[in-house]
Amino acid sequence: MSQLLEVNGISVTFDGFRAINNLSFNIGRAELRAIIGPNGAGKTTFMDIVTGKTKPDEGTVLWGEMSRNLIGMNEARIAQEGIGRKFQKPTVFEDQSVEDNLLMALRNNRRAFAVLFWKPTDADMNRVSELAAEIGLSNALGRKAGELSHGQKQWLEIGMLLAQEPKLLLVDEPAAGMTPEEREKTTDILVEAAKTRAVVVVEHDMEFVRRLNCKVTVLHEGSVLAEGSLDHVTANKQVIDVYLGR
């Protein structure tokens, strides 16, 4: 099976600090992957590079069947290619209703003129209701996003990501600040999503990662330290050293 995303030998330096060092990473079309690593391992920078926020000093990021290089594209272009990203802090548009938030994220023509004359079709409205049901916000469609609880905002953001219908979902610490029940629901949403697309989850919480039950990539000092099942990598000597300190 060909890979959806192939990251080859990327490096990036900030003021002499090598945040990412010759990192390579692959993920298939419908796969759930967790990335773990201590603070400063380069997890967020890695996401920044894939989504076009940061330009690497070297290396390539190849995408899709055509293996197009994503480096040099801007964030909006990459998002339109089918990469969705969820930030650590829930970022939804608090001044707008849940429905508006979802409508904005729906996969449609993103050009200014098209958006200006755009009217929601029945299909669009159905999709919004479906998504709202999926993230458990059916009753909150008319509410302002700012009024939601922290966990609801996280789900709304995931819902918006799903509405984009991305081929690859990058999720940064989705479980942070959630109650145990909320975590469970989040796990379900992510596992479900990974059935039809690639999902990369960055997470600190081992318990949460274990529940995802997927292949794990360990990052350390900007490069891949180990890869495999959670049990496999946690048995790795190097990984233990990194996490527990030498």
């Binding site: 900030f14 003021d15 600090f17 945040a19 920078t45 926020k53």
Partner: peptide
């Protein structure tokens, strides 16, 4: 100012 220290 360069890098992540510059904030984003």
């Amino acid at each position: 100012l360069k890098g992540r220290a510059a904030g984003d």
